[in-house]
């Protein structure tokens, strides 16, 4: 039992660290604020959730606390990503290499009317 718990904890830590790293790498490599939010907002949460799994299995944190923290992370993560992207769009930060922009089209149409 102890061995299985250690194995689960180690696997969760390794995968969680991998995703946290991928999130940081995405923050550096992706071109603009909107695509960077994909990397930090979602992949970062994924890494944190897996690290919480490891903590729940291996440390005296307990599943109740871990599950509550995971739920809060998953509820608040997309909300903060949405608010940041919305604010960025409103102050007019451009998208790099965009192939379409329905929102700009809709707004110019609304301005015409």
């Amino acid at each position: 039992m102890e061995d299985i718990r250690a194995l689960v904890a180690i696997l969760a830590i390794m995968v969680g660290t991998f995703f946290s790293l991928a999130g940081v790498l995405g923050m550096v490599r992706l071109p603009d604020v909107y695509s960077r939010l994909h990397a930090t907002g979602k992949v970062g949460i994924y890494g944190a959730v897996l690290l919480l799994v490891a903590a729940a299995v291996w440390t005296p944190l307990g599943w109740g606390r871990a599950l509550l923290l995971m739920a809060l992370l998953m509820v608040t993560g997309p909300v903060s990503a949405h608010v940041i992207s919305s604010a960025a769009y409103r102050i007019g930060l451009p998208m790099k290499n965009a192939i379409r922009d329905d929102l700009a089209a809709a707004q110019s149409q609304a301005d015409d009317n």
Partner: peptide, 24 residues
């Protein structure tokens, strides 16, 4: 969420950075 994490990680880690961003 799992699919999302894997997909974004793959995009970030691939050397050519295959994104075609846009607002739909």
């Amino acid at each position: 969420m799992v699919v999302s994490g894997v997909q974004v990680a793959r995009i970030v880690l691939s050397p050519s950075l295959p994104i075609r961003p846009g607002i739909v």
